[in-house]
Write a protein that binds this DNA or RNA. Sequence first.
RNA 1: GCCCGGAUGGUGAAAUGGUAGACACAGGGGACUUAAAAUCCCUUGCUCGGAAGAGCGUGUGGGUUCGAGUCCCACUCUGGGCACCA
Length: 797
Amino acid sequence: ENEAIKTKTHPAPMIDRYAATYKRQMDLVGISYDWSRSFKSSEPTFYRWTQWIFELLYKRGLAYRKLAAVNWDPVDKTVLADEEIIGGRAERSGAIVEKRYIPQWFFKITDYAQRLIDDLDTIDWPEGIKSQQRNWIGRSDGVQFRMKVGGRGTSTPKVEEDELEILSKHELTFDVFTTRVDTVFGMTFCVLAPEHKLLGSILKQVDEVHATAVREYQAAAQRMSETDRLATTREKTGVFTGACAINPANGEEVPIWVADYVLATYGTGAIMAVPGHDDRDFEFAQTFGIPVRAVIAPAAGVEPELPFVAKDGVLINSGEYSGMSVADAQAALGEWMEALGLGERKVQYKLRDWLISRQRYWGCPIPVIHGADDELQLVPENCLPVELPEVDDYEPGDDGSSPLARIPEFVNTADLDGRLGHRETDTMGGFACSSWYFLRFCDPFNDDEAWDQEKVAYWMPVDCYVGGAEHAVMHLLYARFWTKVLFDAGLCPVTEPFSRLENQGQVLANTPYRKPREGESLGVGEDGILISFKEAADLDGADVFYRWARMSKSKGNVVTPEEAVEHYGADALRVYELFVAPFDADIQWSNEGMQGAVRFLSRIFKLCSDVAPHFHAEWRDVLPFEELGEDAASLRRELHKAIRKCGEDIEKFAFNTYISTLMKFLNTATELQRRFKPDDRGMVLAYSEAVECLILLIAPAAPHSADELWQRLGREGFTFNATWPTFDPKLAVDLADTIACQVNGKLRDTIEMPAGAGNEELEAAAKASPKVQAHLEGKTIRKVIVVPGKLVNFVVS
RNA sequence: GCCCGGAUGGUGAAAUGGUAGACACAGGGGACUUAAAAUCCCUUGCUCGGAAGAGCGUGUGGGUUCGAGUCCCACUCUGGGCACCA
C-alpha cells in the first residue's frame, strides 16, 4: 500500500510481480510446493469468503462497531501505527500526533480469551510462544468494586481544606478492578486514567484551578504512546482532581488523582492505589507526598519493609480481617463485597478486542451498508463479494477516511429497504485474510462455498505450521480465534488450526555502516549510517563497522537465491542453510560456509562414483550378509546408526545435526574405503548398501544430486518415490562403550568396556586404571557412582 | 518499561544432569604440482611443560548436586513482540 501511494500505481500488478519472484526462487532451489493450490487473497474469489466470515461473526454477536482512538497525523492527514510515532511526533512528517476518535469495527476475541488459554495445552507449539500467548491474553483473578465520589478530602496533605468542594449532589461512582483486594485497607488514594469517562462530570464539580490542571494533563497524555506511558523507569506524573472517593472497606475518604500510568483500555480504567503494597503506587505516593500505609506483613508481629508486594503474608491494620492470610482475606473480602452488592469477584483479561478497521484502500471491503436511517445492515450473502472499486489514487482522505469514501458510485447504494444508503468504506486489516487461508487451501477454487466440509475434515488441522516467531501473539492468536468461531458454527471440525508449530530463523547479512561525522544526526536508536559495500571499501577502515542485519533491498545487502545457486548450486545452498545453524536460529550468511557444503556434496559424488562400478544392485537379497570382515561390519554399524539418527533429527526439525550425521558417516566411509578391495564380497555388499542408503538419506537435503547419483547406480525414477531406509536395531549400536573414569567429578581416564558390562565390572575396571589409581592413593573412597555405559565416579576424601 | 528467546574456541555450532567443543569453517604444517587451484593427510580451546602430565575453561555473581553448558536465585549484554508493517 505504501509503495502504491508513493509510486501512484495499482497494488495488484505489484502482487503479481512479487509472487512470481517468490515462486521462481522457490522452484530454483527445488522446494516442492503444490502450486496447483495457490491463490491470491486479494482477489474477490477469495475475499468474498472473508466477507462471508465477517457476516458470520456479526450474526454471532462477535463483530461490533464502537468509537476508538486512532493516531492522527495532521500534516500528512493520515492514520499512523504506534510504531510510526516517535516521542509523540510522526516519524515522517514530524507533526505532533493527535488522537482522534472514529467509529471502528472490532471482533470480540475477548469472548474466547479463556478457551484460547485452555487449548494451548492441547497443541504442540514451542513453550515460549505459548507463554507469550498466555501472558498476552493475561488472565488475572480479582475483585471489581464500586467507589463513590464524595466527602471532603482529608488525607491529602498538599491540598488546603478550603480548596475542596463537597461532591454529594449527584452520586457519582466508578468501578475499580484489583487483584489484591486483601490490601484494600491500605488504600490512600485512587487514580483514574486521563481518558476516564467520569472525569467530565467530576470536573464540573471542582474548582477551576483543579479542573484546568486536569484538562492540561489530559491533553498531554493524549500525545503519549502506551509504551511510553507504562515505562516504569519514567518519573510518575499526575494531578489531583480536587475530589475524593470513599473506600467501601473502611469508609475513609481518599483523594482522586489522574495519572497516565493507569490505562483506560485495561480493567475499568481506574484503580485503588495501595502504595504500601504496589511498586508503581508507592513511587507515585513518594513523588506526591501521599501517605503510605502497611496492611500486609510477612508474618504476624513482623514489621514489613514498604513497599511489600509479596503475596505470602498476613493482614494487619485491616479491621476484622487483621490476622488473616492474604489468600483467605481475598476470599473473605470478595464474599463480603458480593454479599453487600458493592462489587463482585471477576476475571479480567489484558487481551483487547481485535480492531479490524483500516482506513485504507488495499484491503477486503467490510460488507456493511449504513441504511437510510443509519442502521447497520449486512450486505446479503447473494450480493457478495463487495468488490474493491478502482480508484485514482491510494491516499487516505483529508478527514482520515479510506480512499473508498471518495467514490460516490461505491458509497451510494440502495439499502435493504430500497432507500439510499451508503456503504461502509473501511476495509479489513490483512490479519483477516490470514486467519482462515489455511482452510481455503483445502478447497481453493470452490465457487459455491468457502470450503467443502469433507475436504476440510480430510486436511485439517495443519500438521505442522512453519513461520517466524514474530507472529507469536497476533496472527497465531487471530487464526486460533477464527477457527474456534467456525468450529462453534459447525463449519470446521477442529478447534485448533495448527497442531504443531515450528519457528524458522532468518538469514542475516553482514552489512556495512560508518560512524557519524561531526554534526551529523542519526535516526532514533541508531548509532551509524548505512553505507554500500563499495563505499565501505573506499572509506578509511576506522570509520566503518559491520553488523548482522536482515537482508533488505534498502540496505543493499541482499544475497538472492539466484546468485547463490549460480555460484554454488541449489543443493549446496540447501545443505548450507540446513547445516549452518538450528532451524529456529538466525543464519549469518557466509560464502566460506557455502564452500563447505559444495565440498561435502563433491565428496559424496566421489564416494558414489568409486563404488558404482562394483555396485551390487541386489545387496538386499543377500541379507543377512555372511563373511563380513571387521571393516564391513563396522561400516554397517555406522550406517545403521546414521539411518536412525537422521530419521530422529528430521522428525524434530534438527536439520543441522541431520547433515552433520551424514558428514560423519561419509568420513567413516571414505576412511574405510582405503581398504576396499573389489574381490572382498563383504565390503562390496556393505558399500553397496552404504552408498544406496546415503543417497536416499541426503535426498531431502540435496534432491538434485541424489537423483543424479540414484540413476548412476542404475536405479529407476526419482529418490522422492523411493522408500526411506530402515535401520536394523541390532546393528545400530556400539559393541563397546567408552567409560569416563572420574575421581571427585574430575575426569582422570577413559576406558573401553564391552557394551552391557555390569556395574561391579565397570567399577573394578575403573579402579584398575593407573591414572585413577594415582588419584586414589592415600585417600578413602566414600562413595562410588556408576552410570552403566557412561561413567564411574569415585568420591574420595 | 513489560512479555518471550539467546549468550559455548579465531568463526558457525554439538552435547536425555554424566568424557564440553561432535560436525564444519578459518588457521598452521605436510603430500601432490613446473606453479597455482582443486584434492588428500596431520594439527588446532586457553595457560604452564621437551614430554608425560597438571591447571583453567560454556556472558557475570551466588546456590543445589557425587557431578551443572544443562536445574534454582540475582544480574549484564543481545534478538523478537507490544495490538494500524503483516
